[in-house]
Amino acid sequence: MNRNRRAFAGNNKPFVFGGIYRTRDKKLRQNRQLRKSMLPKNALMALNEVKGVTISDFTIDSNTDGGFTAVVTVNSNQYEGKGTSKMTAKNAACEKAWRDFIIAKMTPKPPRIHQVEMGSEPMDINEDEADAPDDDLPMLNLASFAIYKLFAEWEREGYVVPEMHPSANAAQQAGGDAGTPVPPVPKEPKKPPVRTELPSGWETMHPATILCIMRPGLNYVDYGSSGDKTNGMQHLGIMVDNQEFHANGRSKKIARRNVAVKVCNSLFGTNFTYSDTT
């Protein structure tokens, strides 16, 4: 025991916990593999890659009030989706089909019962455990779709989401030397989508929330206050669809709501009432 202690004390090299480093390297490899496998995929892509799913009869029609309506048949069931473009309408329809497919896969199946004759009396045998089918929930596709939805939500809020897998031959495509590092070209920010239809149940929603849904990425402008502390008013404004809107309120919160009321009533046909304005 003492000999081992002296040998350890006389060793100037740090003691390396090999197991810890092996575990860390293993996690890094796993994370690398997951990043290669979990590419963002929309509902149509996710459905196409799953066995047992048949997609047919895609129809897309223009709406009289703008936008498009897509109808898709998946496994003999029809799904309808609407969007501001043909692609968004198609993905909206496919997302409903994907939702039903995943929920059906996750729903527990009733146990199979059969009877075994023992003398003259039948006896029920539960084979829920013995004959349980393999778990065929497409987790990789589900995770890829979840990543796609998350990134799409961030982009609607005005954020630029970089590619998960930058092209390895980006330098060659740009005409540069393969051995010379080329700085990545930043993606041009995507413009937030413009919705044409109010969300369902808009009557019970806050006007500022509706404005955020219909025109994401907007910023209110604070024009200061007027009056004294008792009767002071806050002034806010916002630019929407190349139009400027202003409103007042006894607090910034109320002024912000009144600005949203003015925008929603003017552009989206709502009938909200103003509060605490002059």
Rank of each mutant, 00 (worst) to 15 (best):
12 N>T: 15
9 A>E: 12
26 K>T: 15
82 K>F: 01
52 G>D: 08
271 N>T: 13
130 A>M: 09
79 Y>R: 13
116 V>N: 05
234 Q>M: 12
227 G>P: 08
21 Y>K: 11
36 K>C: 08
177 D>Q: 11
67 G>P: 06
113 I>D: 00
218 L>W: 06
41 K>F: 02
40 P>C: 09
99 R>Q: 07
189 P>H: 01
211 L>S: 12
57 D>Y: 02
204 T>F: 01
36 K>H: 06
84 T>G: 10
195 R>P: 04
29 R>D: 04
33 Q>F: 00
195 R>L: 12
263 V>A: 02
38 M>G: 00
254 I>H: 02
30 Q>C: 02
245 F>S: 02
116 V>K: 09
181 P>M: 00
219 N>I: 14
17 F>P: 10
20 I>T: 15
205 M>L: 13
77 N>M: 13
198 L>E: 07
265 N>H: 07
145 F>C: 00
232 G>L: 14
137 L>A: 04
116 V>I: 05
3 R>N: 09
216 P>F: 01
6 R>I: 15
221 V>F: 01
214 M>N: 14
27 K>L: 11
196 T>I: 10
10 G>C: 10
141 N>G: 06
32 R>A: 07
225 S>W: 06
271 N>D: 00
89 A>C: 01
49 E>K: 06
234 Q>S: 12
66 G>V: 09
37 S>Q: 09
21 Y>D: 12
182 V>F: 01
114 H>M: 11
53 V>S: 03
271 N>P: 04
160 V>W: 06
107 T>L: 00
195 R>C: 01
1 M>G: 14
182 V>N: 07
264 C>N: 05
256 R>G: 03
63 N>L: 15
220 Y>K: 15
115 Q>R: 11
235 H>E: 05
139 M>A: 05
17 F>G: 04
212 C>A: 15
128 D>C: 09
64 T>E: 07
111 P>Y: 04
266 S>I: 07
59 T>L: 10
164 M>E: 00
19 G>F: 08
183 P>K: 15
186 P>V: 10
70 A>I: 01
82 K>T: 04
106 M>Q: 08
42 N>K: 07
194 V>Q: 02
60 I>G: 03
142 L>E: 04
130 A>D: 02
146 A>I: 12
252 K>L: 03
17 F>Y: 08
150 L>D: 08
12 N>A: 14
213 I>L: 14
193 P>A: 13
262 K>I: 07
17 F>I: 13
213 I>C: 05
268 F>I: 12
97 A>K: 01
17 F>Q: 14
226 S>L: 10
112 R>C: 02
194 V>N: 02
226 S>N: 13
151 F>C: 14
20 I>Q: 03
257 R>P: 04
205 M>I: 00
239 M>I: 15
182 V>P: 03
162 P>C: 09
271 N>W: 05
21 Y>G: 05
196 T>Y: 02
166 P>D: 03
134 D>N: 02
159 Y>I: 07
72 V>S: 06
40 P>N: 12
171 A>V: 09
